[in-house]
Design a protein around this nucleic acid. Structure first.
Length: 913
RNA sequence: GGGCGUAUAGCUCAGCGGGAGAGCACUUCGUUGACAUCGAAGGGGUCACUGGUUCAAUCCCAGUUACGCCCACCA
């Protein structure tokens, strides 16, 4: 059945995908050669309930290209798919869903009941993203799909926890952590985003205890010296967070600060509470900032906590988990003071309401010194979007610094390489300054920490409760309620998915994977942590190359986000333009930049490219070009065929070279150019007269070559455009293998290409282009066949003309080309390498237009010749430049001069106006 | 406050120490039996600015400007 006029991607994509699936074409090791090296990529697991966004589409297209390329090359290839349970994100979605459905909130149901809801949601939506990845053409081994909450994976997570605990690399401690008051959980440093907030800075007066006073400088002269002094009975502190003053346990000044040093050791009476707190000296207090005196709230500020630890200040927590003020019944708070009623009325207020209340009271009571507008960065939870609270709680931590060392070393030594190199710097910078990693989360959805406590609070860390019990004797145990940071489990992805801790064949075979393809936004979250965990648990790096790619942005360069409403849905685009077009677009934009901007116009362009390819194949089919498994590119006779075979080999080499260096866009550009500009624009056109000509042998050879050339286009394009190529591959012939498993070619241009054929075809193409250009500029009707002859022609030119006569006639739309002794009147001469042609335009030629045309060319040549001459006349150039550069300049000069001479004779022939 | 990145055609972007490129857009022409999701021919750029290195700089170096990103303890 002949091919249809266009590629019907809507129906074909599903059919092709079905065939791959039925053939289990993507399973690990498919198409592997005997004893082949392995090639393994771990998918960055998308959130299980997520939807495919452009970033996924991009990321997975690049992985799929690498995977398909290696699979075709006979590697034992595994692309391991899976999904992440995404603790906070998923819990958030389900909680919102419960609210939308009018169901009881999480806290109104039991943990088990809530988790059941999450699993229900997972079952309902968990397959979505897999299907979307399949739509994209992702050739993962879907039968091996893993989920980070699979029982086996869960087991692996617990084992790693226990292992690290036993190595002393996991510990529990009461520390200040970033607390998300919305989700009521600790989060890690990385999950905190600094957001610029327009706020205020309040100056508060804390009266000195025992009626003490001191002399404080006022004003300043030009040299910054105080212009006077006043007697003060209070210290002024500045803060953006007045509500935390309820938890103040001191005031810090710099030990060398002349203004305050004599006050160190004295105390202030904290307003609202009557608590007497010391003035301490600490270098943290910066005399240049604020008033130089800093209120200390060790339980609600990271710096204050450190200062407090150094100077012996108490910690007083004055908030609950939702960041509402906690005063009533708060023993820490009430210890040492008896706050008045109006202070206790702050109890239960949200921190922001409390802030207002405290400021109002300060004003009423006369200890508000002043207010300034202030823009500052406030840390927010990246998921909840609310300001996080430094909060003092018991949490589990990983000693990240210890794990970081070998992870740094592995990249330094080159065992793992990061591309592009600048991302190595980010990796090092982060790991070298790493802080303890808070891994416990006060959530329900996740891997519950494998720790049990007895009634004395003694810790039993074990993989199973039974094990913990036996270690505890008969004592009753209670399990730690917290779950682990999602990234803790993602960090185990490269070995957890391969069956660890079982010593599976897959683990032995594929661990120490080849490439990790990821965006730079999760280098710290994920890449660095996989390195740490992989090396610690497996004794071997999880991957040998990290390819860091750009982020996808909208056409204006903005990060795509739902809140901005600028999200381009890849599935919608696939529906509209086809998966291949979307893939090709993403591939062609994959240069190692920082971000890439996507517009639909570009996708449409690559959809057209698919159509072009389709029609080239259709042309081949219509002309009886049948793929011949025995085709040998080395025994061709017709120069045209010898040439295109060499071009194909060069394209193959360029594609391989580009992919080997992750230069995806180069590979795409090479193929685009090869298929469209070389095969379609020239080879197909040249073949037409041959198919219709009398030389049956040449026609047959061209048919066979054409079939081969198209096949090679399909093969080479397959990693980028798998659907259309697979479809055509099947449509064009009965084949032993599907394209997805066809062996990647290895022909080299050195053996296949033929210099003489290349030169000849370049000459023919040049001639045709010149004739077309002349015709167009002189406004010769496009349909007119113009007489053409040659005035002089060297041996090579005569051969080229003879061998390609019909092709030249057709593409240049000229008549029989024969020898002429002189240019007839009204003829336009066309200089070529080794000869001169003339187009006999006669009455068709517009003399004025021709003069303009020629003088334009002449100017260009004059400029070039002048430039090269002056360069060659420069002695310092000839003395210093490498020989090949000088030779090149001479050659260019000669060529330009020759062209100019021919042009001049053409100009001379034009009748004077 | 620190660090990094980017400035090349109208737009989106490649490129790179010795002849400025692509796609889209634009102009003109075209019912050429693969394709109008097409074909042919064109126009369009002091490669951000200033200085330096070099025989030679869009490319390397320094600085400037603009935009963007990341990190940082909210006085």
């Amino acid at each position: 059945m002949p091919l249809s006029k266009n590629f019907d991607f809507r129906s074909c994509e599903f059919a092709v995908a079905k065939r791959w699936e039925c053939a289990r074409a993507f399973r690990a090791g498919a198409n592997a050669l005997e004893g082949a090296d392995t090639y393994c990529i771990m998918i960055p697991p998308p959130n299980v309930t997520g939807n495919l966004h452009m970033g996924h589409a991009f990321n997975n297209t690049l992985q799929d290209i690498l995977v398909r390329w290696h699979r075709m090359r006979g590697f034992d290839t595994l692309w391991q798919p899976g999904q992440d349970h995404a603790g906070i994100a998923t819990q958030m979605v389900v909680e919102r869903k419960l609210a939308d459905d009018g169901l009881p909130a999480r806290r109104e149901m039991s943990r088990d009941a809530f988790l059941e809801k999450v699993w229900e949601w997972k079952e309902e939506s968990g397959g979505t993203i897999i299907n979307q990845l399949k739509r994209l053409g992702a050739s993962c081994d879907w039968e091996r799909n893993r989920f980070t909450m699979d029982p086996e994976f869960h087991d692996a997570v617990l084992r790693v926890f226990v292992s690290l605990y036993r190595q002393g690399l996991i510990y529990r401690g009461k520390r200040l952590v970033n607390w998300d008051p919305h989700f009521e959980t600790a989060i890690s440093d990385l999950e905190v985003q600094q957001v610029e907030v327009r706020g205020r800075m309040w100056r508060l007066r804390y009266p000195l205890a025992d009626g003490a006073t001191y002399s404080h400088p006022t004003g300043a002269d030009a040299d910054g010296r105080p212009s006077g002094f006043e007697t003060r009975a209070y210290l002024v502190v500045a803060t953006t967070r007045p509500e935390t003053m309820l938890g103040d346990t001191g005031v810090a000044v710099h030990p060398d600060d002349e203004r305050y040093r004599h006050l160190v050791g004295k105390s202030v009476v904290l307003p609202l509470t009557g608590r007497v707190v010391p003035i301490v000296a600490d270098e943290y207090a910066d005399p240049e900032k604020g008033t130089g005196a800093v209120k200390m709230t060790p339980a609600h500020d990271f710096n204050d906590f450190d200062v407090g630890a150094r100077t012996g200040l108490r910690t007083i927590n004055v908030m609950d988990g939702r960041a509402a003020m906690l005063l009533e019944g708060n023993a820490e708070f009430l210890d040492g003071c008896a706050p008045p009623e109006e202070t206790m009325a702050i109890h239960g207020l949200d921190r922001f309401e409390a802030r207002e209340r405290v400021v109002n009271l300060a004003e009423e009571q006369g200890w508000l010194d002043g207010v300034d507008e202030d823009v500052h960065m406030v840390p927010h939870g990246d998921r909840s979007g609310v300001a996080v609270e430094p909060y003092l709680t018991d949490q589990w931590f990983v000693d990240a610094a210890a794990l970081a060392e070998p992870a740094i070393e592995a990249v330094r030594s080159g065992e793992t390489r990061i591309h592009p190199e600048r991302d190595e710097k980010h990796y090092f910078r982060w790991l070298e300054n790493i802080e303890p990693w808070c891994i416990s989360r006060q959530l329900w959805w996740g891997h519950q920490i494998p720790v049990w406590y007895d009634e004395d609070g003694k810790v039993y860390c074990a993989v199973t409760e039974a094990e913990a019990r036996s270690a505890a004797g008969d004592k009753p145990l209670v399990r730690d309620e917290d779950v682990l940071d999602t990234w803790f489990s993602s960090a185990l992805w490269p070995f957890g998915t391969l069956g660890w801790p079982e010593r599976t064949p897959e683990l032995a075979r594929y661990y120490g994977t080849d490439v990790l393809v990821t965006g730079f936004d999760i280098i710290f979250f994920w890449v660095a942590r996989m390195m740490m965990m992989g090396i610690n648990q497996m004794g071997e790096v999880p991957f040998h190359t990290v390819y860091v790619h750009a982020l996808v942005r909208d056409a204006k360069g903005k990060k795509m986000s739902k809140s901005l409403g600028n999200v381009l849905d890849p599935i919608g685009l696939i529906d509209e333009y086809g998966a291949d077009a979307v893939r090709f677009t993403l591939t062609s934009m994959a240069a190692m930049g920082r971000d890439l901007k996507l517009s639909t116009g570009r996708i449409a362009g690559y959809r057209n490219f698919g159509t072009k390819l389709w029609n080239a194949a259709r042309f081949a089919e219509m002309n009886g070009c049948r793929p011949d498994p025995g085709f040998d590119p080395l025994v061709l006779r017709v120069p045209l065929n010898r040439w295109i075979v060499g071009e194909t080999a060069r394209a193959r080499e360029a594609v391989d070279a580009a992919l080997a260096e992750f230069r995806f866009n180069d590979a795409a550009a090479v193929l685009y150019n090869h298929v469209w500009a070389r095969v379609c624009d020239w080879y197909v056109e040249f073949s037409k007269p041959l198919f219709q000509g009398v030389d049956a042998a040449a026609a047959d050879e061209t048919r066979a070559t054409m079939a081969w050339v198209i096949d090679q286009c399909l093969v080479l394009l397959h990693p980028i455009m798998p659907f259309i190529t697979e479809q055509l591959w099947g449509d064009l012939a009965e084949r032993r293998k599907m394209l997805v498993h066809v062996d990647w070619p290895d022909y080299a241009s050195a053996e296949v290409a033929d210099d003489a054929a290349d030169r000849m075809m370049a000459w023919v193409i040049g001639l045709v282009e010149q004739v077309r250009s002349v015709r167009s500029e002189l406004r010769v009707p496009a349909g007119a066949t113009v007489p053409m002859s040659w005035l002089e022609l060297d041996r090579a030119g005569l051969d080229a003309l003879a061998d390609n006569h019909a092709m030249i006639r057709r593409l240049a739309r000229v008549g029989e080309v024969s020898r002429a002794d002189h240019a007839p009147d009204g003829a336009v001469t066309i200089p070529v390498d080794g000869g001169v042609f003339c187009l006999e335009l006669a009455e068709l030629v517009d003399v004025t237009a021709e003069r303009v045309r020629l003088s334009k060319v002449r100017h260009r040549l004059d400029d070039e010749i002048t430039k090269i001459r002056s360069r060659l006349a420069n002695e310092r150039f000839t003395a210093n430049a490498p020989e090949h550069v000088i030779d090149e300049q001479h050659a260019r000069l000669e060529a330009a001069a020759g062209e100019l001479a021919k042009l001049q004779s053409a100009i001379d022939r034009i009748p004077a106006a």
